Amino acid sequence: MAKPSIELINALRKTAENLANGAPYAWGNHGTCNCGNLIQVTTQLSKEEILTYAHTGWGEWTELAEEFCPTSNTPVNLLLKKLQDLGLTPTDIHNIEYLEDRTVLDHLPGGFRWLQKNKREDVIEYLNTFANILEDALIQHINLNELIESSQPKEKEVITV
């Protein structure tokens, strides 16, 4: 499962919101599929730019993620690096594209069910559920004592000359 972060949670929710508000969606297009829409949110690239960059590699996002080389500066690897910098693993990328992570599916509103990878409403529900799971994990790791201590005013250091 992905490493929870506020940036990733916000990106998943913004992607779901964009799709709910009619963002272009076509599962067979690298620029407007599940991962393509997520990359649009995280990079501010257009669907056309993402499509062009994705075509510097071979295959769907799943294959591209499996072949990812972090030291390569090919455009598609820069896109994948952005997703991995958010905290996603190649398995997460695959699962976002195919809506297959069992943990996410188990936490869907109404309980477990299989979703369709190319159905907009299913993608929206999957992304929002994934964001909720990551948010819950992030909240569990917050140490309130550390937050309280870090928010306390520090004593001013007196410098004598």
Results as ranks from 00 to 15, higher is better:
residue 1 M to P: 14
residue 2 A to W: 01
residue 2 A to Q: 04
residue 3 K to N: 06
residue 5 S to H: 10
residue 7 E to N: 09
residue 8 L to W: 03
residue 10 N to V: 03
residue 12 L to E: 00
residue 16 A to Y: 03
residue 19 L to R: 08
residue 22 G to W: 13
residue 22 G to E: 03
residue 24 P to R: 11
residue 24 P to Q: 14
residue 24 P to N: 15
residue 25 Y to W: 08
residue 27 W to T: 02
residue 27 W to P: 07
residue 27 W to L: 11
residue 29 N to S: 12
residue 31 G to E: 08
residue 34 N to H: 05
residue 34 N to S: 12
residue 35 C to P: 04
residue 36 G to V: 04
residue 37 N to E: 03
residue 38 L to G: 04
residue 39 I to W: 05
residue 39 I to T: 04
residue 39 I to G: 00
residue 41 V to E: 10
residue 41 V to K: 05
residue 42 T to D: 02
residue 44 Q to S: 15
residue 45 L to K: 15
residue 47 K to L: 07
residue 47 K to S: 15
residue 49 E to Q: 15
residue 50 I to A: 01
residue 50 I to D: 03
residue 52 T to E: 15
residue 52 T to M: 12
residue 53 Y to C: 00
residue 54 A to Q: 03
residue 56 T to M: 10
residue 56 T to S: 15
residue 57 G to T: 08
residue 58 W to F: 07
residue 61 W to T: 07
residue 62 T to G: 12
residue 63 E to P: 07
residue 63 E to A: 05
residue 64 L to R: 06
residue 64 L to T: 00
residue 65 A to V: 04
residue 65 A to I: 00
residue 68 F to V: 00
residue 69 C to H: 13
residue 69 C to Q: 14
residue 69 C to A: 13
residue 69 C to G: 06
residue 70 P to R: 06
residue 70 P to N: 09
residue 70 P to Q: 07
residue 70 P to D: 13
residue 71 T to M: 11
residue 72 S to R: 11
residue 72 S to E: 06
residue 73 N to C: 07
residue 74 T to W: 00
residue 74 T to Q: 12
residue 75 P to L: 07
residue 75 P to F: 04
residue 77 N to K: 09
residue 78 L to T: 09
residue 82 K to G: 01
residue 82 K to D: 06
residue 83 L to E: 01
residue 85 D to S: 12
residue 86 L to T: 02
residue 87 G to K: 09
residue 89 T to R: 01
residue 91 T to D: 10
residue 91 T to K: 11
residue 92 D to G: 04
residue 92 D to F: 05
residue 93 I to Q: 01
residue 94 H to Q: 11
residue 94 H to T: 09
residue 95 N to K: 08
residue 96 I to S: 02
residue 97 E to L: 07
residue 98 Y to D: 06
residue 99 L to D: 01
residue 100 E to A: 14
residue 100 E to V: 00
residue 101 D to N: 15
residue 104 V to F: 00
residue 107 H to V: 02
residue 108 L to W: 06
residue 108 L to K: 09
residue 109 P to Q: 09
residue 114 W to V: 09
residue 114 W to L: 14
residue 115 L to A: 09
residue 115 L to G: 13
residue 115 L to S: 03
residue 115 L to Y: 06
residue 116 Q to W: 09
residue 117 K to M: 06
residue 117 K to W: 13
residue 117 K to P: 02
residue 117 K to L: 08
residue 119 K to V: 13
residue 119 K to T: 10
residue 122 D to K: 10
residue 123 V to C: 08
residue 124 I to A: 05
residue 125 E to C: 14
residue 125 E to S: 09
residue 128 N to T: 10
residue 128 N to L: 14
residue 130 F to L: 12
residue 130 F to N: 05
residue 131 A to W: 02
residue 132 N to Y: 05
residue 133 I to M: 02
residue 136 D to P: 00
residue 142 I to N: 01
residue 143 N to S: 08
residue 143 N to M: 05
residue 143 N to D: 14
residue 143 N to C: 11
residue 144 L to Q: 13
residue 144 L to T: 02
residue 146 E to N: 10
residue 146 E to G: 04
residue 146 E to H: 10
residue 147 L to C: 13
residue 147 L to Q: 11
residue 148 I to V: 13
residue 150 S to L: 11
residue 152 Q to E: 11
residue 155 E to V: 14
residue 157 E to R: 13
residue 158 V to L: 14
residue 158 V to M: 05
residue 158 V to H: 04
residue 159 I to G: 03
residue 160 T to H: 12
residue 160 T to Q: 10
residue 161 V to T: 01
